[in-house]
Design a protein around this nucleic acid. Structure first.
Length: 303
DNA sequence: CCAGACGTTGTT
DNA sequence: GTCTGG
DNA sequence: CCAGACGTTGTT
DNA sequence: GTCTGG
């Protein structure tokens, strides 16, 4: 409702000790009245959302994209990078005199976490390595929270979406990863898998970046990981996978070589299944507070 | 024209 | 159920 | 991506 | 900033 706020400190007063108990969200309630109120609110929000994407009369381009997206969702939301910065610079041919950013090795990288990414500094004609936040916040955004839902960008229609169109043209980057995780649905359970290149080399994932200025005037640079259809190895786990780029395509993607959007789009294809490896891992990776090399230790294959 | 979204995931 | 935080 | 939080009223 | 919806 639209009543007054109740003043500062309301939330800090804690739970009330008498009267109706706090109503858990999404749970069955003893009284039908309150449930119906909450259900109505949820339903209203759900309708508002579907109204945006499933408008029945004459689908627009955006609606068509969203409808397509509904059954081919994106996915790459947890990753790892324990290779140190100096080695990353060697692998990506970043000149030694360029800054070597500090970052902690991670076996459980999540959206909003910082990660070093590779760009082409056209002014100097060199590649660079800079730490950015995972979850692209467009420069026009009013709220950083949009980054919670822009950690992936679907390759299909990149040049049509407001959040990614300009980054796709001018702000492409490579995201160095040792690998990432996928959760496979098994009935009502979810089994995490580690994913890597077959030879365990560092992988270069296609990304986009942007620079955002917060209301307080601070600059935030952030990036997203592009997803595409899965190869035969990953298809049993999920219906999307991140775009991994072969080194021979790095110059075009980084903008060191001229490439038109059509050429760039052809690069956004599933990586060969024969060059990748997957194995099931334990459930501890689900909690971002766990972060150590044991997270990628193989466990017995699920039934 | 202005107001408001702009994204992905998840589910059956 | 939906959203935020990590 | 998953884990975990999530609210209002009234009164002083 | 740019696009869609009204």
């Amino acid at each position: 409702m639209s009543g007054p706020s109740g003043g500062a400190g309301t939330r800090a007063t804690g739970l009330r000790s008498t009267g109706a108990p706090f109503v858990p969200f999404g749970r069955k309630l003893p009284g039908a009245g309150l449930r119906s109120v909450i259900s109505a609110c949820a339903e209203r929000r759900r309708l508002a959302r579907s109204h945006r994407t499933e408008r029945p009369g004459g689908p627009t381009h955006r609606v068509a994209c969203s409808a397509l997206a509904r059954h081919s969702a994106g996915m790459c939301g947890r990753a790892r990078l324990s290779t140190d910065a100096s080695e990353i610079k060697l692998i990506f041919s970043i000149p030694p005199h360029r800054p070597t950013p500090n970052f902690a090795p991670t076996w459980n990288l999540a959206p909003t976490d910082p990660l070093p990414i590779v760009r082409f500094d056209a002014h100097r004609g060199e590649r660079s390595l800079d730490v950015m936040r995972w979850g692209l916040v467009p420069y026009w955004a009013s709220d950083i929270k949009i980054g919670y839902s822009t950690f992936n960008a679907k390759a299909e229609g990149l040049d049509a979406r407001p959040a990614f169109r300009e980054p796709f043209r001018r702000r492409r980057c490579l995201v160095p990863l040792d690998g990432f995780y996928e959760w496979k649905k098994l009935g009502d359970k979810r089994q995490p898998y580690a994913v890597a290149l077959a030879d365990r080399r560092l992988m270069a994932v296609a990304g986009l970046w942007d620079s955002w200025r917060s209301p307080q005037g601070e600059r935030l640079r952030s990036f997203t990981i592009i997803t595409t259809k899965p190869n035969e190895l990953l298809a049993p786990l999920h219906d999307r996978m991140p775009v991994i780029l072969d080194p021979r395509h790095w110059p075009a993607w980084l903008g060191e070589e001229a490439a038109d959007p059509a050429q760039l789009r052809t690069l956004l294809a599933p990586y060969p299944a024969d060059d990748m490896a997957i194995w099931p891992v334990g459930p501890r990776v689900g909690n971002v507070k766990n972060n150590d090399p044991s997270l990628i230790e193989p466990v017995a294959a699920p039934a």
